[in-house]
Design a protein around this nucleic acid. Structure first.
Length: 569
RNA sequence: UGACCCAUGGUGUAAUGGUAACACAUCUGGUUUUGGUCCAGACGUUUAAGGUUCGAAUCCUUAUGGGUCAACCA
């Protein structure tokens, strides 16, 4: 067994994991022969924004469950509100799901596919005396709904005749009434302790074109009147959503019970949505960050969006592993963003080619190295995967190292360079610092070192030194823009603010982006957009789409763990 | 003056009436030409009170704490 095979990071779903509560329910259903043992889930995004890591959790859940139990998962756009929804979002959502590694095959649906059927069902409700047209404005309806602790009062239009309701509803459909003048309401129970059962609105007038149905409709069904029936039409067995829909479940069931005669029913289950420390997850807040230019768009690498994470350098595998690790439950939770970072490090460690990059260069002149000599050193690409081969890195008389790899007056445990100290330049020679130069401000500007020609890497040399530094040859190095990203918020819980005059934006991390120019080894010239690297001793970086033929741009995905920095905090 | 959901280490998630465990985080040590990786170890957990039971994290009751519900949003 080689080093790679015994890694614990192997996809968690290969391990014997205990079941989450949904898997328990599903296995019970299968055992009982419910739905003939079939499992059919769906992922139902509203196309009014970009997907974020919380959606990724849901995608992994729904598609993952289907896969695990030999079932299927549909993609269904919940597009019942044309005033907010756009084609642009449909496209980005599909791209993100595919990128995450999931496939809905030929099962792409839209709630708007069902508008005709939904309308017929509404008519049935009217004919059965279970729905009525209300002529009141929304403010009045809202007032009559009461509050959770007090019953509501019935609308004066509640007892209209079936014929009158039918006529009015038809006229609503024909476009005879302006927006907001009438709605269709289910007649349920204004005294219910559940607000959603107090004669919910099921159709509203909206003279707005729809991205799929064009101008065919000027009335649109509400979410509650759409979702369960859509699940029914698609043969969904387990309809999984987040906790805030728990109170909607009685309504979900009510519509099906009053509309459907067959025995089959989809059933709704709820799980806790993902919250991540040091970030916000609501679409509204994310949109605010984009609109008010706190970030550079939905795919800004600091955003918790799927497109942002992709651009940041995250891999689909790392996100899937993350989703597996956080589990599924009904308890409110805040996951430490460190777990996400662990997941991406874990994967990138296995696959990212190692290269040398010096981000804060300090010139080192090797005084006894022959002028003009260049040695092409053969360095491994990834010690985790020796079979992958090696790369050539040129070495010469003048190199750059990191400024913080030298201290004028270093403490004993500093295993790097200082006056009179020795280190190994990784893959090259052991050098000794003989002298250094400072500018008028006291900044170190140059180091003068000697090298030991007997210590060339791979020559069988026995000499050991405590420290090993990365470096680049000054004349061969490639300049690149490097964007050092940090957490978007400085507070673990961005919504926690000192007083009401502030909001989550007051917790924004002012240093979440630093742009510098780094010196990178020449092999990087071949890099393509989104290629991922480990800058040795620093972190994982990937090529940003802003890169041009003449200028590479790198994003820092995540720094390497740094026990030295931690120790010195 | 309500209904519903939830409560296990610092953070998450298991244990399905029978030894409270796994991951991350934290801390030690070992290996290392990355202060990375890897390896070994340590730390630390059932909200409370009653009840049922030979036996309760698990079942029941009450309390406490947290959350959700009052868009013609989803």
């Amino acid at each position: 067994m080689n080093n790679n095979e015994k890694k614990t990071g192997a996809s968690p779903d290969e391990k014997n994991k205990s079941l989450n509560f949904l898997e328990t329910i599903i296995e019970e259903d299968i055992k009982n022969g419910k739905h003939s043992g079939k499992v059919h889930t769906r992922f139902p995004p509203e196309p009014n924004g970009y997907l974020h890591i919380g959606h990724a959790k849901s995608i992994c859940l729904n598609f993952g469950l289907a896969k695990k139990y030999n079932g299927q998962c549909n993609l269904r756009f919940d597009d019942t509100n044309p005033s907010k929804e756009e084609e642009e979002y449909v496209d980005s959502i599909m791209e993100d799901i595919k990128w995450l590694g999931f496939d809905w095959e030929d099962r792409l649906f839209y709630a708007s596919d069902y508008f005709d059927q939904l309308f017929e069902w509404a008519v049935k409700l009217v004919k059965d005396g279970k729905a009525y047209v209300d002529d009141q404005p929304s403010e009045l309806i809202s007032e009559q709904k009461g509050v959770p602790t007090r019953p509501g009062t019935e609308s004066p239009f509640r007892s209209r005749s079936m014929e009158e309701n039918l006529g009015l509803f038809e006229r609503m459909k024909k476009g005879e009434f302006p927006n907001g003048t009438r709605v269709l309401r289910a007649k349920i129970d204004m005294n219910s302790p559940n607000m959603h059962m107090r004669d919910p609105v099921i159709y509203r007038i909206m003279h707005t074109g729809h991205h799929r149905t064009g101008n065919k409709w000027c009335i649109y069904p509400m979410y509650d009147f759409t979702h369960g029936q859509s699940d029914y039409l698609e043969g969904i067995t387990h309809s999984i959503c987040t906790l805030e829909f728990v109170v909607h479940r009685p309504l979900y069931d009510w519509f099906l019970d009053n509309l459907i005669d067959t025995e089959y029913r989809p059933r709704q289950y709820e799980f806790a949505r993902l919250n991540l420390s040091y970030t916000v997850m609501s679409k509204r807040k994310l949109l605010e960050l984009v609109n008010e230019k706190y970030v550079n768009g939905w795919d800004d690498p600091r955003m918790p969006t799927v497109s942002g994470l992709r651009r940041r350098g995250y891999t689909p595998e790392s996100i899937r592993n993350f989703a597996d690790r956080i589990g599924i439950a009904k308890r409110e939770n805040v996951i430490d963003v460190g777990l996400l970072e662990f997941s991406v490090r874990e994967h990138l460690n296995k696959i990212a080619p190692r290269i040398f990059a010096v981000l804060n260069p300090l010139k080192v002149i090797i005084t006894n190295y022959p002028e003009g000599q260049v040695e092409d050193l053969d360095l491994e690409i990834n010690p985790e995967d020796p079979n992958i081969g090696s790369r050539i890195v040129p070495f010469s008389k003048e190199v750059y190292i990191e400024q913080n790899d030298f201290m004028e007056d270093p403490p004993r445990k500093f295993f790097r360079l200082g006056p009179g100290r020795e280190v190994r330049l990784k893959g090259a020679y052991i050098i000794k610092c003989e002298d250094y130069k400072k500018d008028e401000n006291g900044n170190i500007t140059e180091l003068y070192c000697t090298y030991d020609p007997e210590t060339k890497s791979g020559s069988g040399t026995q000499r050991k030194v405590k420290g090993t530094l990365h470096w680049v040859s000054a004349e061969h190095a490639v300049d690149a823009e490097v964007r050092i990203y940090d957490r978007l918020f400085s507070n673990e819980f961005p919504d926690k603010v000192e007083d009401d005059s502030k909001d989550f934006k007051s917790n924004l991390n002012q240093d979440s982006l630093k742009v510098i120019t780094g010196k990178i080894e020449p092999s990087v010239k071949e890099a393509k957009v989104l290629d991922k690297f480990q800058f040795q001793r620093l972190g994982y970086y990937c090529v940003d789409p802003d890169s041009t033929e003449n200028k590479l741009v790198f994003n820092r995905t995540v720094p390497l763990r740094d026990s030295w920095a931690k120790q010195n905090k």
